[in-house]
């Protein structure tokens, strides 16, 4: 079968946010069709649009049904299609068509979701590795991040903006060359980009996710994350260790138990006491198994 380079980049590399990766990287100029003022305006807007992912482009949430996606697409087409918006609608419609084509097909949408690290079931999948695992990984402390976009600007294949929270995040580890990453880390005005040990990364990325906060009546509800994620990670690891020890201790003391009993008790124990940690366990198992 014909191998389309653009498709390849779009789906196998996770940086689909740049929908024309090849030309964006290498020669951003020669596409611009006509050298008149309209084009300058058009390019300016494109830059904004290209930094959006397909869901943002269509203005739907990541869990939108295909009906919602179709409706949104039609609504936007009625605004931007060149029949209505004139020639300046060409570029926007290209983007819409591209986004729609992917999101409306289940298989393409799944691939795309994986590539952008879709937030599914309240469990945000962490950053993806470009190439082999290394001992050091990048981590953005989103508590400190002021949303300046500097890092995304310098290393757009590594960092992305979470428009919902207004903070930056690592989407691909080593998505850009080291020089660009170096520049982006240095460019951070609040020094919120950290080099961390790879083993710590998953816990950190899990903990930095905002968790729903139980409120009282209408007060106090919302989202929270640990004020100091590094401290939280330490205590989390400690708890994990304790949990393991507890399990081993319980195993050693209740040897008379039948395997079924033991299993039932263990699962009940997990559900009751470490429900929150069980989630990350299952997730880590899943993600390493993949």
């Amino acid at each position: 079968m014909l191998s389309s380079f653009s498709c390849h980049q779009q789906f196998s590399r996770p940086n689909s946010l740049q929908t024309r990766p090849h030309f964006n990287l290498k020669n951003p100029v020669w596409w611009r069709r006509r050298q008149n003022s309209v084009v300058v305006v058009r390019c300016g807007r494109n830059e904004v649009e290209e930094s959006k992912n397909y869901y943002e482009l269509l203005g739907v949430c990541v869990d939108a049904s295909s009906q919602e996606i179709k409706d949104a697409y039609r609504k936007l087409q009625k605004k931007y299609h060149p029949d209505i918006a004139g020639e300046k609608g060409h570029e926007s419609t290209l983007m819409l068509n591209k986004a729609y084509k992917v999101l409306v097909k289940d298989d393409l949408r799944k691939q795309y979701d994986a590539s952008i690290g879709k937030i599914s079931n309240n469990l945000r999948i962490g950053s993806i590795w470009e190439g082999s695992l290394r001992s050091q990984a990048l981590f953005v402390d989103e508590n400190a991040c002021i949303g300046c976009r500097e890092c995304v600007h310098h290393a757009g294949n590594t960092f992305m903006m979470d428009e919902g929270f207004g903070t930056a995040r690592v989407k691909v580890q080593y998505g850009d060359d080291e020089e660009r990453i170096e520049i982006s880390v240095d460019s951070c005005p609040v020094n919120c980009i950290h080099w961390v040990d790879t083993e710590e990364l998953e816990v950190l990325e899990y903990l930095i996710q905002p968790q729903p906060k139980v409120g009282y009546g209408i007060y106090g509800q919302g989202w929270e994350r640990p004020a100091n994620v590094f401290m939280a990670a330490k205590s989390f690891n400690k708890q994990l260790k304790q949990q393991e020890e507890n399990q081993q201790r319980s195993k050693s003391t209740d040897e008379e138990e039948t395997p079924a009993q033991s299993q039932a008790r263990e699962s009940a124990y997990r559900e009751l006491k470490v429900g929150r940690f069980a989630r990350i366990w299952s997730w880590m198992k899943r993600s390493t198994g993949q």
Partner: peptide
């Protein structure tokens, strides 16, 4: 393919 469209192949 839905129009307008732009595609490239290397």
């Amino acid at each position: 393919t839905t129009m307008p469209v732009r595609r490239d192949v290397i």
